[in-house]
Design a protein around this nucleic acid. Structure first.
Length: 429
RNA sequence: GGAGGGAUACCCAAGCGGUCAACGGGAUCAGACUGUAAAUCUGACGGCUCUGCCUUCGAAGGUUCGAAUCCUUCUCCCUCCA
């Protein structure tokens, strides 16, 4: 255990023990405030895609943690800021999306955040959209009322934009450079409207958050706070939240609950106890007990299973978790021979990637490519030659293998496996 | 404005007229081992109608029986001098 300041607030104590605190603007004063009263806090999510991904989950869960501790969360979706693009620590200028695309994304992201928060009771959560105050603001107003409070001298010193200023081949547009003024003003506006006194965000947001605390002090003469979360890192140095097939999304249509469950199940031992602290609501005491039990057992650790269950249920719900477990069981420890027709239907429905073919005759190589298990026929041949392909659980290595009628379960389904963990279900006409 | 250096597959990086689809390393994928781990070892790693063929070495032309390798022009990066 590292040495850390003793907070009086139970919430900060818990966050500290979970490793969820990177920086706080005025830790002592915030600690005092949080232990004294219910605080209104916010976190912003910009619509940069049609779904949030795992990187957004930590702050979303943090809003929930605050709410469970009796504080009032505001989830802000950046209908306005999303139209500008945050340059913080981004190597290149962003491509602007059209307003109607962004508006569509705002709706989706709103829908994804809402289930994590409670909208009743004294500390009911609030959904906000900064387009509400920026949409009608005119340019002169912005320049005079907001811009006047920002020093360009200070802004260009920020680490978050340094690489964009120093690199000759990558500039930064005036648009993106202005981003932190918008986010700064959000804080002031939420402070005025809802008495919001704390902003949370990833550690890359520190510069923008401080812009907000400064601006709120100047505009509203209010002392407000910022708290950042550490960047989620992996022990092996690779980027968290990505797999070979791309980002892990919270949207079940983009990343199935099964894939989501599998992602967590495959967490490295070196990371799993940290991730349990980040991504579950199990108490630190419970987590310590799990870790101790795993170390003592000398067997396969339980931590990955617990993490996968907790995280999947949290994001996709109980039913989706059970479906993911059902598939995982059939594919990895069950006997494929015993699957019934309705089990196959269920697998397809529950999220095993699949492809529907139109012809009934097909060489295995073509089917592997069609099912997305191989990028090209050459690759498919390579997989066959290395003995990594199985049809309905039976290893096949013949390059000219044709899918036979006997390999179509119930005349309709063929389950392909490439490597140990990549499955695809082929549906025949 | 002047003088040099460079641009090679996902990344780094050899090659400098034929034996080059292009050394080597990393990443990735797969096999063995295992816990659907890690580490380690082994293999694959442009495409295809695959003992061969096609398309690739910043772009476009040219020389040559033959070019990633030579020539010309262009584009972009780096260093030094004004």
């Amino acid at each position: 255990m590292e040495i850390f300041p003793m907070y009086q607030s139970a919430l900060l104590q818990d966050l500290q023990a979970r490793g969820l605190i990177a920086q706080i603007t005025d830790a002592a004063a915030l600690d005092e405030l949080l232990s004294r009263e219910s605080v209104t806090l916010y976190c912003g999510f910009d619509p940069t895609a049609d779904s949030l991904h795992l990187g957004h989950l930590v702050p979303v869960l943090l809003l929930r943690r605050f709410q469970q501790a009796g504080h009032k969360p505001i989830a802000l979706v950046g209908g306005a800021t999303g139209m500008i693009g945050d340059p913080s620590f981004k190597a290149t200028e962003r491509k602007l999306n059209t307003p109607d695309v962004i508006a569509g994304w705002v709706g989706k992201i709103r829908g994804q955040v809402e289930p994590f928060l409670a909208f009743d009771g004294d500390n009911a959560a609030i959904m906000a959209n900064n387009y509400d105050w920026f949409g009608s603001m005119n340019c002169l107003e912005f320049m005079r009322d907001i811009g006047k409070h920002f020093s360009v001298n200070a802004m260009i010193k920020k680490e978050s934009v340094q690489q964009r200023l120093q690199r000759e081949d990558q500039g930064i547009s005036y648009t993106e450079f202005s981003y932190s003024l918008l986010q700064g003003y959000d804080f002031a506006e939420l402070n005025r409207r809802h008495g919001c006194t704390l902003q949370i965000g990833g550690s890359d947001q520190w510069g923008n958050i401080v812009a907000g605390t400064d601006l709120t002090r100047r505009l509203n003469q209010k002392h407000v706070f910022g708290l950042t979360l550490p960047l989620v890192t992996k022990a092996d140095g690779t980027k968290f939240g990505k797999t070979e097939s791309g980002a892990i999304w919270l949207d079940a249509k983009k990343t199935s609950p099964y894939a989501f469950y599998q992602f967590w199940l495959n967490t490295a031992d070196a990371d799993v106890y940290k991730f349990l602290r980040y991504f579950t609501f199990l108490s630190v005491a419970e987590l310590d007990a799990i870790e101790a039990a795993d170390k003592a057992s000398g067997q396969k650790p339980e931590a990955q299973r617990i993490l996968a269950e907790q995280a999947t249920e949290l994001v996709h719900g109980r039913a989706a978790l059970e479906a993911a477990q059902r598939i995982s069981h059939s594919l990895f420890s069950g006997n494929l021979e015993t699957l019934t027709e309705s089990d196959f239907e269920q697998l397809a429905q529950d999220g095993v990637p699949g492809v529907a073919l139109e012809k009934t005759t097909a060489g295995l190589i073509d089917v592997l490519v069609a099912a997305g298990l191989a990028k090209s026929k050459s690759e498919a041949r390579g997989f066959l030659q290395s003995g990594s392909v199985a049809v309905n659980g039976q290893k096949v290595d013949a390059l000219d293998h044709q899918i036979a009628d006997a390999e179509r379960r119930f005349g309709r389904f063929t389950l392909l496996r490439r490597g140990k963990k990549n499955y695809a279900m082929v549906r025949w006409p």
